[in-house]
Design a protein around this nucleic acid. Structure first.
Lengths: 200, 200, 200, 200
DNA sequence: AATGAATGAGAATTCATTCAT
DNA sequence: AATGAATGAATTCTCATTCAT
């Protein structure tokens, strides 16, 4: 444990540096040298702690998502009703600390790598699965069972779409408005099909 | 550069080859050599027709989008009502000829380049603008004016989110189901806020 | 003769274009494409008239020197005495039409190629030989025979040195001043060793 | 970059190799690969020590001139009178260790690059300035003040002219004779205009 | 653990040159 | 005669990765 303490520290440093470089330079421009420089370390050390470049960026993605996931988890704890849980999940994904152009940019960069990096794909799947499970759990209390899956997918894909737009940087998107769109969307989907209204 | 027919022909060939290579190799793996080989030409000829790699891929993106845009335009022509126009736009974006993993993959690759390629960003903006304008025109006849913009953005971001999911390749998505989700989504959004129902 | 007339014309055009490009782009930057563009012709035509790039630039050097040589020859005709002939030769080498930075620049570029282009070396030798012969002929009437060669070499090397300085572009040199330096130099050399003064 | 001894060593090695290759291959033929091979190193290492090709050759020029400058400086120390100082400067520029065809050839190659490489131009200017200052200092004790500048320029341009001739390789020039020409030239210039003789 | 020297593979790009039209 | 399409060789430069210290 003691022995890994400094080890863990360094790895975290490098992971963060990698993510930071990704934000400004993109995946192609994120060289090990730049990551090392950003972490105030030497080039060689990066591959001392990570087997190779891919592994570093895989860890960077995991790390980046962890914070967001923790934010969502914290919000879920405070939520009392199923509706509040849905709202919490959405709100967590648009927290002003995360939903920022550089962050979205880095995330988009990593997404583009997913199809060629099986490990990254696995991480991505885990992330999506958690989100889906969170949403499904809450939705089960709100809509008929056969509408749980499609609505969960719709909400999470919509969130991704807005992150993508932010990552592209071709339009301005503020967290509050983006969140409002999704909250509205979610409510519209859930309410549709409620008794008294013709579903589709 | 003169627009001789052979010129146009070759450029199209190379553009297609570039897009094809993008589908299988990603942006980093799409070397000029591979593009040339795929087009059955020599490496040198690629840069004879396109100033550089960037330009080639910019044209590839334009080309790829053009077909989809034409598909949407054709469907729009047949639409009679505003609702049908919305449906046409959505349907066009999930046409089985386009909404395929390799296509989505290539598109995602290009999206990741957008933040570092101003020209690509411009193209992306044009694409989004057209989609937005198509949606807005139809929505104006269906919802109050202050709900036109948010709904148009929601629909197009949702579509992008589903394309992203397809591009990631971490889950299976068939065109029909994806389209159905968006059609449902759109209807839910439009109907919400209609007289007789509590808006939000 | 008729047949070569247009031929000769084109060759002259291209030669001039080559020299012009050399002035602005240097030997490395002087591509056949630029030469062709400067002559308002197509790339292919250049090698239709000249076997290859080297040959073109060899002709460019010859051409460039020809004008200067003709200027010197014209001045020589007007000269009456040996002293005037020396002065004429020097003056011709600093004629304001030639002694200009771009010209000197191009000349320097070609000089740098001399050691690797035997044909260019031959041309250079011819140029030097003519200059040397002109100077020697005049000097023979002015100084003892054993001082003819060294003085001729000194004068011509000094002229080259000033052209080099102009070609480097690191200092300003106006034709009149440069010429005055050489004229003074020549007189000093010739006068030194005259009876009544201690030679060396 | 830290100035470790190995660093300095390697850089010197590569600089020398670059200069050596320049002597035999010219600037166009001096590829990084050849330089690396000449230094017995790998291609990659060259750009590990020098940012790019230009920088390498800039350092090569500086290095080459440094030795010559040191030779001149050593000779200047031993000189007692102003005349001896002039002689020392001239002698230093024709030291048999430097005034050799390959050296002159390499120097000429670099001169041709000066107009397109501002950094190289700066170096060239420094070199000329030092020579000019050395000459001027001595000349001030020997001739009227208004003749200092022109004579200093004449001597240094003449020296350059002879180096150019040597670099062209179109004629044979031995250091001793070349030096003698300049020494004679200098004396002639200085003596001209002395009291008792008609100046010009 | 840490450094940075060294390697070598690979990629974009540039161009002279050839050739079909 | 003229064009410009096509080729392919050559070169610079970038980087991940390995290794000696």
């Amino acid at each position: 444990m003691k022995l890994t303490s400094i080890n863990t520290l360094r790895r975290t440093e490098l992971r963060r540096a990698a993510f930071a470089v990704l934000q400004t330079e993109g995946v192609a421009g994120a060289t090990l040298e730049k990551v090392a420089a950003h972490a105030g370390a030497s080039k060689g050390i990066v591959l001392h702690y990570f087997k190779n470049k891919q592994e570093l960026f895989e860890h960077a993605m995991r790390e980046a998502n962890k914070e967001l996931a923790e934010d969502v988890a914290a919000r879920l704890k405070k939520a009392r009703t199923a509706s509040e849980r849905i709202e919490a999940i959405i709100a967590g994904n648009f927290d002003g600390r995360f939903f920022k152009p550089p962050m979205a940019h880095a995330w988009l960069q990593l997404c583009a790598e997913v199809p060629r990096d099986p490990q990254l794909a696995r991480i991505q799947r885990v992330i999506h699965a958690r989100m889906h499970s969170n949403l499904s759990n809450a939705l089960r209390e709100l809509v008929e069972s056969d509408r749980v899956q499609p609505i969960a997918l719709s909400i999470s894909a919509f969130i991704d779409g807005l992150w993508l737009r932010l990552g592209l940087g071709t339009q301005t998107l503020v967290p509050e408005e983006a969140e409002a769109l999704v909250q509205q969307f979610a409510r519209a989907l859930i309410d549709t099909g409620k008794p008294g209204r013709p579903g589709n």
